[in-house]
């Protein structure tokens, strides 16, 4: 199943501020693809790299970590560094497991960054459509 019929499943880990951005997106009726499934977390520094791999192995076609970026209510700018550290490890894990790195994205999304959130989702959705479904074992 590829091409026009393919609706990739995208998992979005939404940290505190990014979750609010998703609220704001709805509030302003800013539409984006519906194949996007949120899991709410307080801060993106919580995410273990192996959890990202887990999501792919279980069948998600793409994962977006929507971090609070430097608006992180826990640690401000330091969040970016910690989240990047996790992401680097996750990319290594994906490579070892033969999963295209383009399937995984990390972005800082502030509480009013509706456009940034939409753009990230749309970009990932397009990428996944050209990559096709994830091959699960």
């Amino acid at each position: 199943m590829t091409g026009d019929d393919f609706r990739p499943k995208i998992l979005i880990f939404a940290a505190e501020m990014a979750y609010r951005a998703a609220d704001a997106a709805g509030l302003t009726k800013a539409e984006y693809p519906s194949n996007t499934y949120y899991i709410r977390i307080p801060c993106s520094s919580l995410l273990r790299p192996d959890l990202i791999l887990y999501a792919f192995k279980k069948g998600f076609d793409g994962v977006l970590v929507a971090s609070s970026g430097d608006d992180c209510p826990f640690m401000g700018e330091a969040c970016i560094e910690k989240t990047s550290k996790r992401a680097e490890k996750a990319y290594e894990l994906l490579e070892q497991n033969g999963i295209e790195r383009e399937r995984f994205k990390v972005a800082g999304i502030c509480s009013t960054c509706v456009e940034a959130l939409r753009r990230q989702i749309q970009d990932l959705n397009e990428t996944l459509q050209s990559l096709g479904p994830i091959k699960t074992t």
Binding site: R7, A22, D23, A24, A25, G26, L27, K29, A30, E31, Y32, P33, S34, N35, T36, Y37, Y38
Partner: peptide
């Protein structure tokens, strides 16, 4: 949250919004 995150964000895609809400 199935209002801001589903119904309001996908009003032209009720089937997709419903599937999202279920998940």
């Amino acid at each position: 949250n199935i209002r801001e995150h589903a119904a309001w964000a996908h009003k032209h895609d009720p089937e997709g919004a419903t599937e999202k809400a279920i998940r």
